[in-house]
Write a protein that binds this DNA or RNA. Structure first.
Lengths: 190, 190
DNA sequence: TACTTAGATGAATATAAATTCATTTATCTT
DNA sequence: AAGATAAATGAATTTATATTCATCTAAGTA
């Protein structure tokens, strides 16, 4: 038998992300994906049952990728601010280096493809961050505000940096990253 | 001759926004819009040349609506913090009360429907805010950081509050608004 | 009141996109 | 090396969606 070309799924994902970045979820077609991935349209259906399952599979892949990055080098025993800054940097790093995946996930959240249950699952990524924030409040290092709003503040901040950096083609030097972190930190600190 | 029912355009816009909120730009069809607006599909084409021009027209309508709200009650001669808080509140108010419009505009930015020139035009809304921030820096009230990042910080903050408030069905009481403004203000203040 | 004009309708048509499938190709097994 | 098996292809088919148009309706005008 002929074995599968195991790079093909990767190629299909890449192609889909590229097209979604260019034209949005509304603009992609299976033919365009196939062409971009340099395979025949029929081949898509060997790897994915249909368009919806391609998108759902890619969504889960993106979630998995982000999990691997968000808590990299995060030491639960490090001082609060160190841990917080590590996660902040990781999430920003993720949004920048995998901008197309971030955009794709965001569009999926408001599409007919992803069901409610999946959305709820996807939110659980941030559990360790919640624990850290509780600790920060106990240690009186940050404002005593509901985690919900602290995370809203932090994530909103990071998402917009990534979006506008990408959109306006801004380079995120260490200085610029530091300055942005400072805005976020001064906001939440006690 | 039979006159146009001038409420019809409004009904079509409402229907489109409702559907985009529910299923994203990727999910809408002209038939669904017509059904939601309780008119015949053919009637859509009396008011709009085609699907694209419906979306483009609605996009411009949304931009216009936001302009009217962002600088309401904004007094250019008021103290810096007052002016800043007025704009912050207005933008948040807009994002909340016209959440569907905000979502629609955001999706349009990454869709095949809106061209580059239109996107650039749409960004000009915030001009008066830029002037205010320059003044705040001159008066040493806020950090001496490029406007680009200050606006990124402020808008990212507001957008995420609106999104998560909507998504998790959170009520934004004056207390919660104040607490969120405090996070933003402590971030940018000198 | 009869006539004219433009809006409204929704079934019919055109177009575009998703999906299938007969055929070809590549690799493995014996 | 021949046969078996599954991948790959892309044209053909099906399905979905955009758009048109013959017909009807309502309001204005003479």
């Amino acid at each position: 038998m002929k074995p599968r070309d195991e790079n093909k799924i990767e190629r299909i994902y890449k192609a889909t992300l590229k097209l979604v970045t260019a034209t949005g979820l509304a603009g992609i077609t299976m033919q365009a994906v196939a062409k971009e991935a340099k395979i025949a349209t029929g081949t898509l259906y060997i790897y994915f049952e249909n368009k919806e399952s391609l998108i759902v599979a890619l969504f889960h892949e993106c979630i998995k990728n982000s999990q691997g990055i968000f808590f990299r080098n995060y030491d639960i025993n490090a001082p609060f601010k160190v841990g917080f800054q590590t996660i902040w940097s990781n999430v920003l790093q993720h949004r920048i280096s995998r901008f197309d995946e971030s955009l794709f996930m965001e569009q999926c959240f408001h599409s007919p493809f992803i069901d409610e249950q999946t959305k709820i699952e996807a939110k659980k990524i941030f559990e360790p961050l919640r624990d850290l924030l509780v600790r920060g409040k106990k240690e009186h290092l940050i404002k005593d505000i509901d985690n919900f709003w602290l995370i809203t503040f932090m994530i909103g901040n990071i998402n917009e940096i990534a979006k506008r950096a990408n959109y306006f083609n801004k380079k995120l030097s260490p200085d610029v990253k530091y300055l942005n972190f400072q805005l976020c930190w001064d906001g939440i600190k006690a």
